[in-house]
Structure formats: structure tokens, C-alpha cells
Design a protein around this nucleic acid. Structure first.
Length: 350
DNA sequence: GACTCGTGGGC
DNA sequence: TGCCCAAGAGT
């Protein structure tokens, strides 16, 4: 079975910029640990399509771990904007600094060594150890859990099934070539053994798949029901300064939702008091912003005002219009900006 | 173990 | 449209 998987994997066309070709791999080359690490962190709970552009921009701006370690944190956060789970960006830079200072710019080559670094958990440590350093590591992500649950028709629901699925994944992991094996399993899960509508007809492992034999492949892995998402309400304030059109922005607290990111002043969406950041003639934008986070839906009223050049806000600071970059905002705040623009005087709408 | 933490695409 | 989901980690 492992042979069938390997043959399938070597025949796949892979165009991901953090990979090297199977030919180069067979010749003994290995991918740059920095690029493996960067891509694996970006890929945490994030699709390949969403990651590709970010990966290319990051490696262009910061070609190695020492360059990233030297980067101002605000630059890294701005470059990450839109990708989500912003604690990853903060941990990314912290990890780079640790590697640069404590490991002379070289990533540890063992799971334990990697696991000790910020932002590197069990999955990422195993993936880097296997893919970049040829270690035998058991790499288990959501893809592997799904593939293994189906191969062995393991019907116990997640997350309870996790230890058993890991043990099964361990049995499949070869002593040599664990990195290629891991990538093959994940690619299989991403392209054939998909959550919905698995393409068993073309699966290289169909012959040995217990769930396929029982006709329950699409039903696995079973999962515990998810709790309902509550709806929260809030307000965001968009203030523009007369004359120069400077925008009032604030840095969000380092931890918590959108931690460390730039945004428009507003409330905490928990029902707390919502005072404007300065006294002005606030008026509501015509459209409200809707945004869904992992565990709740948000409806934001957007308030807009133009203020005098003598305005002194309680919170945040005015940012010159030619410095303000909506692309450095998290997606929610980009939506706020998009909702505010039509309500602003036309001179501000370029 | 249970929460928290983003976003975009697919159906 | 609403819900599902994606190469998880930190607390």
C-alpha cells in the first residue's frame, strides 16, 4: 500500500513554491528548512490557494530566517494581514528571533527541538523534522486523520478518535522517507480523499480501504456536533481629518481577537460601553458590516465623521492618507473601510 | 479537554 | 444564504 501511495505521489504535478521536485528529492536534495517552516505555519488551518501569494511575498521580503528576525514586528503583521489567526504572525517573528539568536540561524533538526519554539506545535514540528531533515516523524494533520479513519474504517468520532488515528498513522509511517510519505498522505487528502465527495475511483489506496469496502468513506471521519455561533453587535468609528484626509487608526491589544493588528476604533463586541474616540458629528454609514469569525457572527455599525485639524482623539492616532494602506488591515477592517467610503466626501474617495 | 483564534471557497 | 471546511497552536 505504501508503494502505491509513493508511486501516485511521484506522478503528481506539484507547483507549490515551498516544494522541491521528486527528482531533486531522489537526488538527495532537501528543501530549505526556513521555507518548510514558513509554509507549514502559513498552512495551519489555511488553504494552499490562500497561502501561495503570502509565501511568495514573505520570501521575497525576507529570504532567510535572520532577515525575518530583523524585521520590525509591524512590518510582519502588515504582511500577514488578511491571512488570519494573527497570533501566528507574532509567533513567527518570535520564532525567527529565537532561531537567529539561540541557534545561529539554523532550525533545530529534531521534533523536540522544533517543538520548543513558539508557534511550532506537534504537527508542525513533525512536518519540518520529516520534510526538511529526513527524520522519521509521524505527521498528523486533518488530512491524515481523514485518510487513516477511512483506510481503517475507524468510526469513533473526533476529537476522541485522535489518539487511535495517530497510532494508525504511526503504523503507516516508513522508517525511511517519512517526509515524502507525509506529503503524499496530505496531498491525497487534499485532492482525492476529500472531506466531501471523495474520488475513490481514482484513489491509489482504494483497494486497501476498509471504508470504501463498506461504502461509508464519505461519512468518515465522524465528528462531534458543533455548537451554534452567537451573533454579536458592535460599532466601528471611521474619522477623517479635514484638509489632509488623515485616517484615525489604532493598534489593537497584542492578544485576543485580531491581536496586534491595526484597526478602526470601536467597541469590544461584548456589549461594553461604546464611546466614540472623539467628539464629532458622527453619522451612520448606509451599509453595516457582517463578518463571521470562528466562533461567532459579527454585525458592525459603521460610524463616519470628518473632524478638524485640531482634533485630539482619546484613542488611536491619525495616519496620513498617503501612508494609510488598507491592505495592511485585517479583512474585517477592510470591510469597515469599504463600508465607510461611500459615506465620505468625494474628495476622500480615491 | 474545552475554548479562543480568521478567512475565503465550495456546495 | 448558511454551513462546512482547511497542512493547528496556545492557554
Amino acid at each position: 500500500m505504501t508503494a502505491a501511495l509513493g508511486a501516485w505521489y511521484r506522478g503528481q504535478a506539484r507547483v507549490m513554491p515551498w516544494r522541491i521536485s521528486p527528482r531533486d528529492w531522489a537526488a538527495g536534495m532537501r528543501p530549505d528548512p526556513y521555507r518548510v517552516w514558513l509554509s507549514e505555519v502559513m498552512l495551519q488551518q489555511t488553504t494552499v490557494a490562500a497561502v501561495r501569494g503570502y509565501f511568495l511575498r514573505f520570501t521575497e521580503s525576507w529570504p532567510d530566517v535572520c532577515a525575518l528576525a530583523r524585521a520590525p514586528e509591524a512590518d510582519v503583521m502588515a504582511a500577514w494581514a488578511g491571512l488570519g489567526y494573527y497570533a501566528r504572525a507574532r509567533n513567527l517573528r518570535a520564532c525567527a528571533a529565537r532561531v537567529a539568536e539561540e541557534h545561529a540561524g539554523r532550525f533545530p533538526d529534531t521534533e523536540d527541538g522544533l517543538r520548543a519554539l513558539p508557534g511550532i506545535g506537534p504537527y508542525t514540528a513533525a512536518a519540518i523534522a520529516a520534510i526538511a531533515f529526513d527524520r522519521r516523524a509521524v505527521v498528523v494533520d486533518g488530512n491524515v486523520e481523514r485518510v487513516v479513519a477511512r483506510l481503517f474504517a475507524h468510526e469513533e468520532p473526533l476529537p476522541r478518535a485522535r489518539p487511535a488515528l495517530r497510532a494508525l498513522a504511526d503504523r503507516l509511517t516508513p522508517a525511511q522517507g517519512a517526509g515524502q510519505h507525509a506529503q503524499a498522505m496530505m496531498d491525497l487528502g487534499a485532492t482525492i480523499c476529500t472531506p466531501r465527495g471523495p474520488r475513490c475511483e481514482i484513489c491509489p489506496l482504494a483497494g486497501g480501504c476498509a471504508a470504501r469496502a463498506r461504502g461509508i468513506a464519505a461519512e468518515l471521519p465522524r465528528k462531534a456536533p458543533k455548537p451554534e455561533k452567537p451573533v454579536r453587535d458592535g460599532v466601528a468609528f471611521v474619522a477623517l481629518r479635514h484638509g489632509d484626509g488623515a485616517v484615525l487608526l489604532e493598534q489593537r491589544p497584542p492578544k485576543g481577537l485580531l491581536g496586534g493588528m491595526t484597526g478602526f476604533p470601536g467597541c469590544d463586541w461584548q456589549g461594553a460601553e461604546t464611546a466614540p474616540p472623539l467628539a464629532a458629528d458622527w453619522r451612520a454609514a448606509t451599509t453595516e458590516v457582517r463578518h463571521t469569525f470562528t466562533h461567532f457572527h459579527l454585525r458592525l455599525r459603521v460610524m463616519v465623521a470628518e473632524v478638524g485639524t485640531d482634533a485630539r482623539p482619546d484613542r488611536g492616532a491619525f495616519v496620513a492618507r498617503d501612508v494609510f494602506d488598507p491592505g495592511a488591515l485585517p479583512t474585517l477592517m477592510r470591510k469597515v473601510w469599504a463600508a465607510a467610503l461611500p459615506a465620505l466626501p468625494s474628495v476622500f474617495q480615491e
